[in-house]
Design a protein around this nucleic acid. Structure first.
Lengths: 189, 189
DNA sequence: CCTCTATTTTGATGTATGCCAAATTAGACA
DNA sequence: TGTCTAATTTGGCATACATCAAAATAGAGG
């Protein structure tokens, strides 16, 4: 079930989440990007402690940071979290539940959580874009730099993806601030 | 994203898997049920160490033990492992990908990893049985007591489920030893 | 450059825990 | 009941690491 070569990755990943403070940190960052001081007071620990834990989460790619003026905002990389969670069952040899069309496209175009290339076929492209969109939480503002950072974890050409997000109305852009649209607004569904 | 009341459960769960020895243990048990001594030599650690780790995994319900004659066989509870892995995303508020029919039935009849009741409708019943079957690995023998233990983690009336498994040819029974059948043999698919 | 603030690094301390050897227990079988 | 094997518990040691205070650093803005 577990690929020996991934044991180390998995131990690190589980270790990262096996601490109460870090888990709460992840919980807070899941709500919105937050700066270090706010996290410290929220959790009732010192700033160095937050820094210490954030650096561990960043080392695993679970958190990205974006500087804005004098403060650094930390944001959760949801896609990475899901990808690592799935690692555990990667080598599962049990008869897989029948994949639907969407699932097939996803597994063809993604490898180890990264997008190989953007599909040309419209329908497939939408599946892939929707998959990438999962890394973003609704009802939350994202700075452009943040959007870029998060896309970049799955695909280098973040400009194309960001543009596709907006063109297909998966995301709304207002004065440089991005936001996930409710599915009713999405095109091509 | 993370329910505060479950933080402790999650910390324990991740902690359980955040150790190389325990992760290897899980990997070995995923292949087949194994006794302590064999695990010890396989991993190159002492018997007390194995015992120590097994007891941690058992405390979380990740491992069940069945005594046969003089030796105790430990077996992985795959269903529990999957259920705990999913906990992390339980409170996920992102727009869910459209659930297919099977997924809808599963989420209606299961709650927190346990089966509420066995559906009466034939088709739904099969979905549920297939879900329960995921706790068993193919190409591996299960003792009846072991089958019971594993089913019991999801549903108290293990007799009914075990009988349904055999009747629908999801499992084969030969002289008291159970085995998952390949999907080609399953009835009603 | 200088200042100011947020973050990170350093150093020290206490706790948690993985590991083994030795002793003990549990249960099967005669 | 006695014996035998496998598993567990106990005790002790070493390491890992969460935490904080204090010091150092980074970068924005004058």
């Amino acid at each position: 079930m577990i690929d020996p070569s991934r044991i180390n990755t998995l131990v690190q990943f589980y270790g990262a989440l096996a601490d109460e403070t870090r888990l709460k940190l992840v919980g807070l960052l899941a709500l919105r990007p937050t700066c270090g001081q706010h996290l410290a007071t929220e959790l009732g620990v010192s700033a160095p402690t937050v820094s210490h834990h954030i650096s561990k989460l960043k080392a695993l790619g679970l958190v990205v940071s974006v500087r804005e003026d004098n403060t650094i905002y930390y944001a959760l990389n949801t896609a990475k979290l899901q990808h690592l969670t799935k690692e555990m069952f990667a080598e599962d040899s049990r008869p897989a539940p029948p994949k639907d069309e969407r699932q097939k496209v996803i597994s063809n175009f993604f490898e180890s959580g990264r997008l190989r290339c953007l599909p040309v076929q419209y329908k497939k492209k939408l599946y892939v874009l929707q998959e990438l969109l999962k890394a973003f939480v609704p009802n939350r503002d994202y700075l452009e730099a943040e959007v870029n950072e998060i896309i970049k974890m799955s695909f280098d050409d973040y400009c194309t993806i960001r543009r596709e997000f907006v063109m297909n109305r998966y995301m709304n852009r207002d004065r440089g601030v991005y936001r996930v649209n409710p599915p009713e607004l999405w095109l091509g569904c």
